[in-house]
Structures are given as structure tokens and as C-alpha cells.
Amino acid sequence: MLTVNRYKCCYCGACVGVCPTCALELVETFIEVSADCKECGICTKICPVGALEVKA
């Protein structure tokens, strides 16, 4: 599953813009992941601070 390290996340929303299934949402200061997430990992690559990770 896709995990968001809330202690690293700077809530910029870059991940939201690249998500192919529109599964991410930036709510002020945190990222919400919906059930639409396909764990493709695209968002993890562009996270400027490395807060996103797909874990088995």
C-alpha cells in the first residue's frame, strides 16, 4: 500500500497532480489516499522530500 510519512510531507500537492487515478487529495496539511490508488508508485518518484512509499 501507499504510505505517506506525515513527518516528512511538506504538503505541496505535487503527488496529486501526477496521480493517474486521481486517488490523492491534499487536505491543507496532509495527503489523503483513496481506495482508487493502484500503488503504481509514480507519485513516490516526484515527491521532493521522499515522503511517499509503496510498501508490500
Binding site: A14, G17, V18, C22, I46, P48, V49
Partner: peptide, 13 residues
């Protein structure tokens, strides 16, 4: 469809 491809976004700090 406004989804950005990885080659069409700059990730910045």
C-alpha cells in the same frame, strides 16, 4: 485530463 506525465512536471525544493 490534466494528469501530469513525469516528463511534464518539475519537482522543486
Amino acid at each position: 485530463d490534466t494528469t501530469l506525465k513525469l516528463k511534464d512536471i518539475e519537482t522543486c525544493a
